[in-house]
Amino acid sequence: MANKILLEVVTPDKLLLSKEVEVVVATGVDGEFGVLHGHVPFLASLDIGEMRFKDGNQTEYAAIAGGFAEVTGEKVTILAEAAELAREIDIDRAQRARERAQQRVDKSRAEELDYARAEAAMQRAMMRLKVAGRSGGMAV
């Protein structure tokens, strides 16, 4: 079995996850990247997107609302302002957040205010829903 790498997901509210995994795939601003044990030191800006990690034949997903990934040979640290594991996402809540975001987008488009922020909120909401849909245990 390949060597494992320690994955830590840290948000301002808590240490969301600390786990030894085989591979981590995250969404950087320049696209997805995968990390295995022994990766060179690496620092990446993360986009609003999903992250997945695999341990054995189990793959888990998490929604990341932007942040950074710091990689050293033995460890990946994801610093996110907000992050949720797929299995912990409350779909109803995410759905409501999406609707709220939609309203904000519509409103800000009409009034030309804070469109970028409304849009970002929308993106985060969509991502949460998408990732939540993954918790059914689909293959990578």
Binding site: V29, F42, L43, S45, F68
Partner: peptide, 23 residues
């Protein structure tokens, strides 16, 4: 530590500094 960065270190900094303010 010396990092490989993606995108460039400057661009990451642009992203990172406003967040530092939040912290």
């Amino acid at each position: 530590q010396e990092y490989l960065t993606e995108p460039s270190a400057e661009e990451i900094l642009v992203d990172l500094l406003p967040r530092y303010l939040n912290v």
